[in-house]
Design a protein around this nucleic acid. Structure first.
Lengths: 188, 188, 188, 188
DNA sequence: CATGAATGAGTTTTCATTCAT
DNA sequence: GATGAATGAAAACTCATTCAT
């Protein structure tokens, strides 16, 4: 990806996180990215396309982050814990500001079918974990999306609360939260 | 609250749900609310103020909805289940379209302290449930905000997935999801 | 004149002085005058009429002020000096804010002919002074308007400079200024 | 200064002269200047800024006009007369319509200090004349601002009366007025 | 390729005036 | 007479997009 294109995407994400959709102008993006306004239109058809491509860009970033330090030799619980913390770190550190903002889902997207296929591909390590867990009767026999929402994603939601200023959380509470979310999906 | 003010808030909410933030103009609001554009400015300082007050208005609506059909005589599990479904119904039916959308992140906000106080007051029935559950050692000894994020709120997150088009969910799956989220917060 | 009408005129003058034409709204006038907006329209046809009547109101006020402590028995120089200081006091004290603002001449007016007749009537003591001075060859044989502009009115212009912040002036300088302006109209 | 910026300033001045502050809209300015409305906002923050910058622009114009055909070799009286008539011509011809109108009173201003410095620089030829006159005891020993108000500026005030419709003045009367204003500042 | 000034349709906001109470 | 909520036309201002350089 060109340097400029990447700068534009990064700038857009940053501005979206700080100013929200309401209040994102192409001139602001250009200024933040240190390019001319016209330059944006070399890489993106229009504003919608910029937002659309940003969505994919972020998705790729998250997929990459979530699977860091994961290997098949790790136990399911270890893998779960690592992914949960990967998400948490990313959310809390502000590296992917849009996830914790819940603004992410407002980006324009492909249709449901395409998205599912994309997710399956990008988040294969996550799906693999859920599939293995269900195969050995450790996990409840539910759709991966449901399992993910009930467990892994609580990581992002907690991070959002922390960042938005309401929640203070200690390391031991964080640990407890990971285990609690694990309890949601395992069989008892 | 004046008739007109309420009509403006309702109109705004409706338009926000159908068109999103991007396509919300004061003219549209005025037309939908059947008032003159200038009238909006009698009740709200500007567009931001309108959105901010809408936020509070909706919060009140949600608080009211969540506690419907709840009584102290019900068991904790029954209360939990009812609240979970109250949230789910509201989210899925589109009656409180904004709750799912994280659209309010960038509105001017009260500070964390004020917000916490407000939440405590509005969602007292929720807090009471968590407090009782912890008192009798049924629930894990965690902060109510954490417990809520891990359990009740999954209702909204699942609803969002459903609405956004990705997720189809049967009644029995829904039941399983409720129980799974309950598992997250009870002691095992 | 009704109490309310007077309050409206006074409020208008004050607001005009502080905010200028640009930035004078009927609602502001109503608020400042502590009447309802609609009330203004009981006493004035429309905004232009309000401004027009204000002009006459102020003119009357000035005419009254300028002739205070003037009697025919005083010498011309004494009368001149007194009028000059009457104008100066009024301008500097902020009692007739519009004169020093130079905004006065922007108020809508009757046509030149009517105005001349009005001025002749209102400022008869001024005209009398100039006429007497010319009759005894003390003053230069010029039109009263010209004489007034060259002499008496410098009082207002100096006051304006003082109020606008640029000019500091001592009592003896003030005296010198009065005498200098007198020099402009007497024969040498 | 850019071509467009100058065109906007000129258009604004013209419209202000013909329609007054009351009837000056940004659309009109754009149309008169033959630019798009948005273009104005490239060069000026908002309407107030446009007016403020116009003020400075006109001040420069006046300073330039006032010193036309002035040379150090001319006698003080000649210089005075020339400047007086320069001002008169400019005021009467409507080339600097705003000078007479006191319309700038309510614009956001520099503070008194800055303004004084600016004036000293712009109107150096005026100040030089007054300084020389005082040095050789021809003029009264008063502050230049006072001298100017009592003498030179009567040119503008008379012009204003003429333009506003009240005053007709012949060439010989004009001459007499110049000499009369000169009398105000010289020692007798 | 990159620029950024220019565009003008579309937005937010104001405000003179009316009118039911 | 007095009120002030309501109006809506007209104003100020924004911003996605284009295009000459």
């Amino acid at each position: 990806m060109t340097d400029k294109k990447e700068r534009i995407l990064t700038a857009t994400e940053k501005l979206l996180a700080t100013h929200g959709f309401h209040g994102l102008s192409m001139q602001m993006v250009a200024k933040e990215a240190q390019v001319a306004t016209g330059t944006i239109y070399r890489y993106f058809d229009d504003k919608d396309d910029l937002l659309f491509q940003l969505h994919e860009y972020i998705l790729g970033y998250i997929a990459n982050k979530i699977s860091q330090n994961i290997s098949d030799s790790m136990s399911l619980k270890q893998r779960y814990r690592t992914m949960w913390l990967n998400l948490w770190q990313m959310s809390v550190s502000g590296n992917a500001p849009l996830i914790n903002q819940g603004q992410f889902q407002n980006l324009p997207r492909k249709n449901a079918h395409e998205r599912k296929a994309l997710n399956k591909h990008l988040f294969s390590c996550v799906n693999q974990m859920f599939d293995e867990g269900k195969a050995c009767n450790l996990f409840k026999p539910l759709d991966n999306e449901i399992l993910s929402t009930l467990s892994l994603e609580t990581s992002c939601y907690l991070a959002r609360r922390k960042i938005n200023g309401g929640l203070e959380i200690t390391d031991s509470e964080l640990n407890a939260a990971i285990n609690a979310s694990w309890d949601a999906i395992i069989q008892h």
